[in-house]
Design a protein around this nucleic acid. Structure first.
Length: 213
DNA sequence: CCATTAAATTCAA
DNA sequence: TTGAATTTAATGG
């Protein structure tokens, strides 16, 4: 996605687990490209509640919403694992967009996909039950990060599932327990294994769960 | 929502 | 590699 010229004109930033590299309200002067590791992007609500907007993995970009007109970040981002990030200044980005149509096209697809996803997200929050949202979250993580030895390949706390699904930690834990009893998932500490993907899918299929990679 | 207990992860020796 | 310290999960009020 990024051509050589562009990848030469950036600075690499190493980020330890749990480190926040975008703070809400800070001025925007570029955007980040994830080289390795995973990252969560969130927005803080009025009551101090965190709403996780999305999870990002390598080859994805962060902070794009602030690009162009906006002066300050409306989101925060923290590394879930030790990560390496490339940082691109606005200037370099503009140059690449003007000179490289393929890159511009890819960016546009990315924006379109993100917009689609956030529209679907609004729907899921407003129309789905808590249980459906939790299942949806599980499938999203599973689809995006895959599994390793049967367990979802991303260690997330229950709180993080809750923040993505728009619920509380307790609700998530209780729904997980219910799903375990039904034999649909198993858990071991933070690791979660989806035993029966298709059954979970059918439970939320009427809400046409969104496609995202 | 909070408090308690059980369990898992981290960290340092 | 072990266990003590810290963090996280799970349950019940």
């Amino acid at each position: 996605m990024f051509d050589n010229r562009l990848s030469q004109s950036n600075t690499v930033l190493k980020c330890k687990k749990g480190q926040q590299f975008i703070i809400e309200g800070a001025p925007v002067n570029g955007l980040f490209f994830i080289k390795s590791g995973t990252v969560k992007v969130f927005r803080t609500g009025i009551n101090g509640r965190e709403q996780i907007v999305r999870f990002a993995k390598p080859c994805e970009i962060i902070g794009h919403r602030g690009f162009g007109t906006q002066e300050y970040y409306s989101i925060g981002a923290i590394a879930l694992q030790d990560s390496e990030l490339h940082y691109f200044s606005k200037e370099h980005l503009q140059e690449a967009l003007l000179e490289n149509p393929k890159f511009t096209y890819d960016m546009m697809l990315f924006y379109a996909n993100e917009l689609n996803r956030s529209e679907n997200k609004v729907k899921s929050i407003s129309q789905m039950t808590v249980r459906e949202r939790v299942i949806d979250t599980l499938l999203y993580i599973h689809r995006k990060f895959g599994d390793l030895l049967g367990y979802i390949n991303l260690p997330l706390s229950r709180k993080e599932y809750a923040d993505y699904a728009g619920t509380t930690e307790e609700q998530v834990i209780r729904i997980f327990s219910a799903l375990k009893k039904e034999g649909l998932i198993t858990t071991r500490g933070k690791k979660i294994s989806i035993v029966n993907v298709s059954k979970l899918k059918t439970e939320i299929s009427e809400h046409n769960y969104f496609l995202d990679t």
